[in-house]
Design a protein around this nucleic acid. Structure first.
Lengths: 193, 193
DNA sequence: CGGAATCTTGAAAGTGTTCAAATCAAGTGG
DNA sequence: CCACTTGATTTGAACACTTTCAAGATTCCG
């Protein structure tokens, strides 16, 4: 299962991952499994580990007073999942994270992550991930303030067909900032076109 | 004017900024000025420099077919401004950036930024900025999909009183994802309370 | 088959938008 | 210092989009 991680890291670098480095990664990341619906993180607790998803699907969300869930982030194979704010600051999280499918992952603690920084290839990857993340977030914010529900939906369907299949409509709807009912209407409207 | 930058960098580090490092910073950052309303970046062009704002106020926004502007980001003294996607990828930007007030800044090209990475204090700061940025973006996304216009407004007013004063209502409204009219009504509604 | 989860749909209510007109505020030039 | 221009805010009324709620249909799975 570490092989998947090594390949992933490899993609960010021109230099190959050395045997010595692999040992460091094996030492730093620990395997972990969750069954569908189990929590990875609950609101109020601290996010001790960031998860690299080997297999499965997860979601990060908040819950309001009325019990409505708002999905802020989704993740599947080869994505990272965790609450960075809580992980970095070691503060109680305002989010919940759970497994939507049975999920296998590799966990990385904050101290271990800092330790791995001495590996140029790792540090380089982290940088690139920050870049990407920033771009994606910026675009998502732009979409949220400027685009209609219909546009956000069609763009999402184009960009993330994989997620459309793996998660039910009401979760996608929440992620996009509207309700399952609106989602259903949008869908049938687009089919009619 | 470089002193402001040095102090800023200093805040992210325990080790003081050395004289030698200061020389490197002076060599890497170049002073630049913009008059109110002048463009820093126009849609379609490449963001060659990231700006550290010494004095003034800027905004980053998109424009739709109808000419409506959507403000995605605001910046004042000691904030960074630029389109990271375009800066990193050297791709044409989908954003416009202009000065809302007469603005002085220090410009940093992508190659120079990479060069400065060899300074631990700089690299460290960049990391922390990425962390912060990520947290702020995550929270903003969460607010956008889960909170009402009124809540987004009151939270913004609490978190960024400075920005409320420096930018007109219609720009803040756009940043928060609604119109100036709604903003005006929200305000008078809250005053009545 | 039976039950749980998910999706669909209609009607009413709510929230925010649009548009246009009026008001207010802040320079600028005479 | 006033008149004028421009930019910004306010407000009402009609409208558009999305939500809410509830009921029914569908799908999935043991």
């Amino acid at each position: 299962m570490y092989e998947i991680l090594f390949e992933y890291i490899q993609k960010f670098n021109s230099e190959p991952v050395t045997a010595a480095e692999k040992e460091l990664y094996r030492a730093a990341f620990s395997p972990f499994k969750l069954r569908r619906k189990q929590y990875f993180l609950q609101e109020g607790s601290r996010c001790k580990h960031f998860a690299f998803i080997i297999k499965g699907a997860m979601r990060l969300y908040t819950v309001d007073e009325t019990g409505t869930e708002y999905v802020a982030r989704l993740g599947i194979e080869n994505w990272w999942m965790g609450d960075r704010e809580s992980w970095v600051m070691n503060s109680p999280s305002i989010y919940n994270i759970d497994a939507w499918e049975d999920t296998e992952m590799l966990l990385l603690s904050r101290p271990n992550a800092i330790g791995l920084t001495s590996i140029p290839g790792f540090s380089n990857m982290m940088h690139q991930l920050d870049d990407r993340n920033n771009m994606a977030n910026q675009r998502r914010i732009t979409a949220a303030i400027s685009a209609s529900a219909e546009k956000r939906f069609t763009e999402f369907a184009e960009c993330y067909p994989e997620l459309m299949e793996r998660f039910p409509q009401y979760i996608i709807a929440s992620y996009l900032g509207f309700t399952k009912d609106t989602m259903s209407r949008l869908k049938s409207k687009l089919v009619r076109k």
